[in-house]
């Protein structure tokens, strides 16, 4: 579904990704972990073209991701949930969900509204349909952002540290929804520091450090028997 071939990304002189090869299968739940600055967020931002790769290639379902194909590919294949939620503050919750499906997928308004309502119910916030996002808590905003992603009906959802900006008491409500989503045939690529989530949901965990993929494997392999020294050092710091 997603294929990265020798992907390099430089910001000025700083090389953030140093030749990444990675394939994500349809319906796979891939969790990317690693220290901050390891390039894991840049990695998923390259997948949906928010960052243009400096060298190498990204393919979505066999189509090359470029500056020119980005809009069409994202429209058809993927959605993203951001650390800072990035809901549209000038639109109500309902309008946030309906905007892209109506404007980009030519979904009839009635259909979009019904679908949006279904997804709001799913994240437990149907009663907030008519309010503006800034009146909601961080956890609620992130649940709305997930509902917005679902309303696109796309096969891939990227999660870029979806719980990192949340107060501790709100983390669980977001993770619960993500766990529930993982039972569906959606391809999920998740950058997170939530190891409990990785263990429960991931088909495969990828450890990223210094712009390279250091190690990958099942959660079982990862949390019980990591091979690389750097992986062990990272896990020992984070799993106390």
């Amino acid at each position: 579904m997603i294929k990265l071939k020798n992907v390099h990304k430089k910001f000025g002189h700083l090389e953030v990704l140093k030749g990444i090869d990675l394939t994500v299968e349809k319906g796979e739940k891939l969790v990317t972990i690693g220290p901050s600055g390891s390039g894991k967020s840049t990695l998923i931002r390259c997948m949906n073209g928010l960052e243009e790769v400096t060298a190498g290639e990204v393919y979505i379902d066999g189509h090359r991701m470029t500056h020119k194909t980005r809009a069409a590919l994202n429209r058809q294949y993927s959605s993203m949930v951001f650390q800072q939620f990035n809901l549209y503050p000038h639109l109500t919750v309902m309008e946030n969900l309906m905007l892209a499906p109506v404007k980009l997928k030519n979904m009839p308004k009635a259909e979009a509204q019904e679908l949006a309502m279904q997804n709001l119910k799913r994240v437990g916030l149907a009663q907030k349909a008519q309010v503006y996002p800034t009146t909601l808590s961080g956890g609620q905003q992130q649940r709305i952002a997930i509902a917005r992603s679902l309303t696109m009906k796309n096969p891939i959802i990227y999660f870029d540290e979806p719980t990192s900006a949340l107060d501790p008491e709100m983390v669980q409500e977001v993770l619960d929804i993500m766990v529930e989503l993982s039972h569906e045939n959606i391809t999920m690529v998740v950058v997170t520091h939530e190891m409990g989530f990785a263990r429960e949901v991931a088909d495969r965990v990828v450890f990223c450090d210094g712009g390279n993929l250091i190690e990958q494997g099942t959660p079982e392999h990862f949390f019980t028997n990591p091979e690389h020294e750097r992986t062990r050092a990272f896990l020992s710091k984070i799993l106390r």
């Binding site: 949906n48 809009a71 994202n74 993203m80 809901l87």
Partner: peptide, 17 residues
């Protein structure tokens, strides 16, 4: 905020949209 541009692009909006 840059996040607004990123959100729109991630949904498949082009520049004009």
């Amino acid at each position: 905020p840059a996040g607004q541009f990123a959100a729109a692009r991630s949904q498949g909006f082009g520049y004009a949209q």
